[in-house]
C-alpha cells in the first residue's frame, strides 16, 4: 500500500526563538531550519511500515518555500521513495495546508497518511484532523502505536489519563506523538542516494487551492518574564517559607 507523509520545515527545535523588535513575528533570518520533530517521527513510522512489508511506496510532501526541498531530501534519505514540494513563499495556515494535502491525496490515493501531531512553530495541532475531515477519512491522532491489519488500522492514542485504541477503516489519517518511535539518522550513502530520488514541484494554483489566510496575526510579543525568587539554605527553611510566607501548604 502507498503511504503519504507530510513534513514541515520549521525553526530547529534547539534554536532559541527571538521575537522581532517590531512585534510582527519571530526572527527567522539566518536561523537554522530543520524538519519538524513530530514529522521526523511520521517519516520513521512510514519507513518501518515499508521495512515490515506493509507499505510499498512512501511519498513525502511538504508545503513551503523552495528551501523546503532540504526537508524532503532528508525524508528521502531516511527511506521515502519520492517527494512533492508544493512551493509557495506565502504563509500557509492549517486549513489551507489541509486543502493542499487533500488535493495531493486525491492524486496519489494513499491508503495511509501520516503527519506529525503539531508543528513546533505555530503549535496549532490541526492539519491532520482537518485533512481527515476534508477527505472523509477516519483519524488516529497522537499515536503511540500503529498496526495495519488488512482493511483497517489500529491506532493507540495518547490521551489525558492514559491510552485509547481505535480501529479505523483504510484509507485513514494518523498523527504522531512523541513515543511512537525513535527516528533514525540518515547514513551518508543514503543521503547521496536521496539526491537522485524524484522530487516534483507544484504550486498551490496547480492544485486549484486558494491559500489566502483566514487568521491575521496582529502582533507577536515575547512572553512576560517571570521574576526569579530567592535561594533557601536548606529544606527546613523551604518548608517554613512555603507554610508561612507563600502559604501554599
Amino acid at each position: 500500500m502507498k503511504v503519504l507523509v507530510a513534513v514541515k520545515r520549521v525553526i530547529d527545535y534547539n534554536v532559541k526563538v527571538r521575537v522581532k523588535p517590531d512585534n510582527t513575528g519571530v526572527d527567522l533570518a539566518n536561523v537554522k531550519m530543520a524538519m519538524n520533530p513530530f514529522c521526523e517521527i511520521a517519516v520513521e513510522e512510514a519507513v518501518r511500515l515499508k521495512e515490515k512489508g506493509v507499505a510499498s511506496e512512501i511519498v513525502v510532501v511538504s508545503i513551503g518555500p523552495k528551501a523546503a526541498q532540504e526537508q524532503i531530501r532528508t525524508a528521502l534519505a531516511l527511506g521515502a521513495d519520492r517527494g512533492i514540494l508544493i512551493e509557495t513563499d506565502e504563509e500557509v495556515q492549517s486549513l489551507e495546508a489541509a486543502k493542499l494535502l487533500k488535493a495531493v491525496v486525491e492524486k496519489e490515493e494513499p491508503k495511509l497518511v501520516i503527519l506529525g501531531k503539531q508543528a513546533i512553530d505555530s503549535d496549532n495541532n490541526q492539519t491532520g484532523q482537518m485533512l481527515a475531515a476534508l477527505t472523509g477519512m477516519g483519524q488516529g491522532t497522537f499515536a503511540s502505536e500503529v498496526v495495519v491489519d488488512g482493511d483497517n488500522v489500529q491506532v493507540t492514542r495518547e490521551v489525558d489519563g492514559g491510552l485509547v485504541t481505535v480501529a479505523l477503516n483504510l484509507p485513514a489519517v494518523v498523527t504522531t506523538d512523541l513515543r511512537l518511535n525513535e527516528p533514525r539518522y540518515a547514513s551518508l550513502p543514503n543521503i547521496m542516494k536521496a539526491k537522485k530520488k524524484p522530487l516534483d514541484t507544484l504550486s498551490p494554483a496547480d492544485l486549484g487551492v486558494d491559500i489566502a489566510p483566514r487568521l491575521t496575526t496582529l502582533k507577536v510579543e515575547a512572553p512576560a518574564p517571570r521574576q526569579a525568587g530567592v535561594k533557601v539554605a536548606d529544606v527546613a527553611e523551604l518548608v517554613d517559607k512555603l507554610k508561612n510566607e507563600a502559604k501554599v501548604i
Binding site: 486549513l95 495541532n125 489525558d160 487568521l215
Partner: peptide, 23 residues
C-alpha cells in the same frame, strides 16, 4: 484544549470551512 478537544475540534472547523484558533 485537552486531547479530546484537540482531536475533534479541527475536524469541526474543516467541516464548517473555517480556521481554528488553538489553545
Amino acid at each position: 484544549a485537552g486531547t479530546t478537544g484537540k482531536d475533534f475540534m479541527p475536524r469541526v472547523a474543516a467541516m464548517l470551512d473555517v480556521a481554528q484558533v488553538s489553545d
